[in-house]
Amino acid sequence: MSEEKKYPLKKVLLICAKGSIEDVYASLVMANGAVMEGIETKVFFTFFGLDAITKARMNNLHTSTVGNPAMRMPGGIPFPTWLGGVPGVESAVSSIMRSQMEALDIPPVDEFLEMIKAGGGEIYACKLAFDMFKMKKEDLWDGVKDVITIGQFYEMADGLQTQIIFT
């Protein structure tokens, strides 16, 4: 029997286009996980995903309490959509979610990005979204490497065993 040859991942490029807690953390966990495995990692934040690298918003991301059929109350009872729309509920639920993550040693967004950067991961902002939201460089987290176009980001996917992941 011949053993199948394996080609382990060498590089991952992640695109984070949404700004809710779960979408941003999905990208951050995958990015950090890749760095921890010694995989070259680059993350591109675009559209509402830019909130994750915007100083004023990054550590106060929210989850949506309306239109999310998987949202549950403590104890597993379905979360009524009307309740999700009550002022303050989304903030409260988001705050509980962040504290539960902290209890599992999942860091806040800025610290998570620092960890990724400490391991050699690179963070980029999308130029088109950056212009559209009329942002300034100083609005962005200091660790952002550059504001680039999607074309420049694709150019970085220039090797074998490279994957692009969109979240």
């Binding site: 950090n32 921890m36 495995e37 010694g38 040693d105 860091p107 960890m115 400490a118 391991g119």
Partner: peptide, 29 residues
């Protein structure tokens, strides 16, 4: 206790950047 990259960064022995340099590649492994 669960072992995380973050806990090592807070261990006082090194920071996370140092950890990556000391055990190059896949530090926790």
């Amino acid at each position: 206790e669960a072992l995380t990259l973050r806990s090592i960064g807070k261990s006082g022995a090194t920071d996370i950047k140092g950890f990556y340099q000391l055990f190059p590649g896949a530090p926790l492994k």
